[in-house]
Design a protein around this nucleic acid. Structure first.
Lengths: 136, 136
DNA sequence: CTTGACCCTGTAGTTACTACAGGGTCTATC
DNA sequence: GATAGACCCTGTAGTAACTACAGGGTCAAG
């Protein structure tokens, strides 16, 4: 039962988050408003730190803030089925898979136009040509 | 020698660009300001259409507006070496490659946490657990 | 002469922060 | 008790690359 009070700077250092970002999460309803000290400083407790860590890990996995908000809501309701959690995670995985195949296609395109370049002058540049004309 | 006058709507339809986006490109120096009709409508010519097509193709390949600006500048100087063009394209390819490997790593992480899910209740959810605790 | 499609400028919204500006607080040291 | 420096506060504006209005003007057809 750790009831030490943490400043926003502590949270920032312990999670590798900028102070402004923590305030941003609060303003956007991801992190609950903590109580304040006499000097109006935010006074955080362990649960805030846990929640912030959760947010940061989810963000590192590329979940959008909206998805994180959903995950937090779901996580708070401990007795609910975790099917909804699973759905959010699978949705995120789909997004990542789609992005990967998009980027692989893109890289193919770039390979193709870069390979054609013989590095003469711009007038003969195959890269410029590829960008200037449609299709192939 | 095609000297027909095109409205912004024509350019938009022919390149699949929103009208607002064309104005945005103009304001940001990617597309030169065209002359105006008596009614103050933008009056484009073929070269504007070509330039806009170039911009759209480059954007489709994921070049940033800054990179597109550079490419346009380079493309305009027809007698210059195209080494600089090549460099921009290779830089873009590097970005794409980096992003692909980042996303593949991410997908691995997501696979790992999703696979552990046995879809019971949230209290036992492995996905939530993964997000709540560090490292593994 | 009115309707509807088109055009104009300018501003605000999107995502997820980041970076100030312009202040107040706290702690240590002289 | 004064002062320096580290920290905190609010609020606004900036980033990328658009997109979406609001509130107007223009133009062609009927």
């Amino acid at each position: 039962m750790n009831r030490e009070i943490l400043t926003i700077g502590h949270l920032a250092r312990q999670t590798g988050t900028k102070v402004e970002t923590i305030r941003f999460y609060e303003k956007n309803g991801l992190l609950p408003e903590p109580s304040r000290t006499d000097g109006n400083y935010r006074a955080y407790e362990q649960e805030h730190l846990d929640r912030l860590s959760f947010i940061r890990r989810a963000r590192d996995l590329g979940f959008s803030l909206d998805q994180v908000r959903t995950l937090l809501m779901l996580a708070d309701d401990r007795s609910q089925s975790c099917a909804a959690v699973d759905a959010v995670a699978r949705e995120r995985r789909n997004e990542v898979e789609r992005k990967i195949s998009d980027l692989i296609a893109l890289k193919g395109e770039l390979d193709r136009i870069i390979d054609r370049c013989e590095c003469g002058i711009v007038a003969d540049c195959r890269i410029i040509e590829s960008l200037s004309t449609a299709g192939s």
